[in-house]
Structures are given as structure tokens and as C-alpha cells.
Design a protein around this nucleic acid. Structure first.
Lengths: 161, 161
DNA sequence: GTTGAAAAATTCCGCCG
DNA sequence: CGGCGGAATTTTTCAAC
């Protein structure tokens, strides 16, 4: 479930560009990388086929939509065997945007985006704490998002012009 | 820095669709929502102008690219006045994909994606710990990402057909 | 990997409710 | 004014080389 396919430098360059701007036209990328538009198309098709490219998401300013609170909630389970069940229930909560199975302090670690502190309070007391199998939670509130970017692929030749 | 613009239901429906699939053609969205392609175009332009739409990112399977370790690192600062300086230095580390200023236990909370545990170890000891102003760090390693999705906008009328 | 041409989507503009 | 329809321009997509 994590097979590494052979990618050449062109693949990585195309990915690098689209990872920060998925809407850029293939013809523009082609110009930038000095290849034909057809080539970019073929590469992307291959990358989609092997599952490296899973799709594209619009980046929105959540705060401008009224979602002001980003928080991380660490969840301790009563028994680790409850993991699947708890994840299933957490999945029902729309405000949860990420959930990870983790080592260390917590069993499950989640990222949550909600409208205000009242929303968060209700979410914790009425939704999260209500899930059976959860022992206790720890909440971390983010005041400011300072870095948000994709991973940077290292590309050998950046001698494009 | 968080002004809420008036969005109608059509705006929210368009956003909802593109937030999960930014590559969907405007004409397809138009068909789905029973409006003309031109209308979708005008709405998106407005959403971009007011900054609600910031861009689009390709979603990639990091594991297939060899990036197997997702970890969260909480950073304690010696003095909170060092915040800006430390963020600036963290920003230089390509593996850092997110950084937040937080309340609670930590001062800075980061999400990091790297290739393997050895990479992570080096990152911690050679890059993070080397930043002056950092007192200590706490690391959380994610074994499995189970939920990864955008926020869900509530749309009044979903009577599209 | 390229070229070129058909099909489709984007983008713009004048018109209508 | 907000939405519509159509036309010009670009882009995507695919074949043959």
C-alpha cells in the first residue's frame, strides 16, 4: 500500500507545479518545462493511474467563510480495540477534517475546524465526549496559521527558463 | 482580516463541489446546479476576488512518493517574544507543511511530513533543536491517516437533480 | 516525446427578465 | 443587476509519427 513508482525529473517538476496551483493549464506547464502539452498530459495520466495524484482541492479561506477556530483534539481510548468504532463515529462529525491513528500520548489525533468557541465547546461536550469508548480528550487551539503548504519534492534540474 | 462576505446558496454549492474536486469543469457544475456556465464563472471570479478562494492544490499520495512519516511536533519557546523569529527559521525547513501559533501546552505546533524515521530523527536533532529560542519539543507520530477532507459547508437547497 | 487536429471548456459580451 | 446564451479563444485530449 505504498509502492514507490519510478518518477523522473519531469514527473516531479509537473507535480511540484500542480501541488501549489492545481488549476494551471497543462499548456502553461509545458511551456515552462520546455516540453509539449501532450507530454504533460501523458505524464499526468500516468500519475493518476498509479494513484500518486488523488485529485485536487480548492483552497479556501475558512476564516472568511466564518470558520475561525482551528483546533487539535487528542483522544484517549478506553481500549485500543475500540479504534475502528470510534473513528467511524468521529467520521460522522463534519467539523473533523483530519484524523490520525497515533503513537505516544493519544490514540487518535484529530484536526477540527469550527465557527467559534461556542461551536467548539458544543462539539466537545455533545459530540466527542458522547462517543462511547473515549476516555478523555485534550484540546489545543490554534490562534494563527502561519505555514500551510504542500511537501516540497526535490527536483534535480531547475534550469528551466 | 476575516470579513464575512454575503454568500448565497449557489456560491456555497459551487464551493462545496470544488472543495472536493477542484478540477471539475465549470460546465459540469453548471449542469449539476441547473445554471449556465457563465454564471458559475462569474461566481467563482467573485469568490476569488474577495479572497475566499485562494487557489487549488493537487492532492497527492505522499506515501507513494516515499514520504511515509506524518508527525506533529509541539515546540516550547524559551520566551514567547521569540515567536516570529522561530517561525521564520521553521519556515526554512521544507518538511514542515503546517505551523500554528497555539494556546495551551505549546507555543508553536507543527505538522511535518518526511520520508522515514531516520529523516525525522535528523530533522529533530539537526534542524529543529538547532533553532535558538526553542526550549524543548514533543513529537507525535501518526501511523495512519484515516480522515482527510475539507470543511463541509451547509447548503440549504440540495434539491439538484 | 512531438505534432496537429478534433472535442471540450473557458471566458467574454450583449441581451433579457 | 444577476443570470442567460452564444461566439471567440484556449485548453484538453488523442491519434499517428
Amino acid at each position: 500500500m505504498a509502492k514507490i513508482h519510478e518518477l523522473d525529473d519531469l514527473d516531479r517538476q509537473i507535480l511540484s507545479i500542480l501541488m501549489t496551483d492545481a488549476k494551471m493549464a497543462y499548456t502553461d506547464i509545458a511551456k515552462q518545462l520546455q516540453v509539449s502539452g501532450g507530454t504533460v498530459h501523458v505524464r499526468m495520466k500516468k500519475l493518476e493511474e498509479v494513484g500518486i495524484v488523488k485529485g485536487a482541492r480548492l483552497e479556501v479561506d475558512e476564516a472568511k467563510l466564518g470558520y475561525d477556530i482551528i483546533s487539535f483534539i487528542g483522544i484517549f481510548l478506553e481500549k485500543s480495540s475500540l479504534y475502528e468504532d470510534v473513528i467511524r463515529q468521529i467520521n460522522q462529525i463534519p467539523e473533523v477534517v483530519n484524523a490520525y491513528y497515533t503513537t505516544g500520548n493519544y490514540s487518535i489525533f484529530t484536526k477540527i475546524i469550527c465557527k467559534d468557541t461556542d461551536d467548539l465547546r458544543k462539539l466537545l461536550s455533545e459530540k466527542i465526549q458522547a462517543i462511547s469508548g473515549i476516555q478523555r480528550t485534550e484540546t489545543l487551539i490554534a490562534l494563527e496559521e502561519r505555514i500551510d503548504r504542500p511537501i516540497s519534492l526535490d527536483v534535480k534540474n531547475t534550469q528551466d527558463r
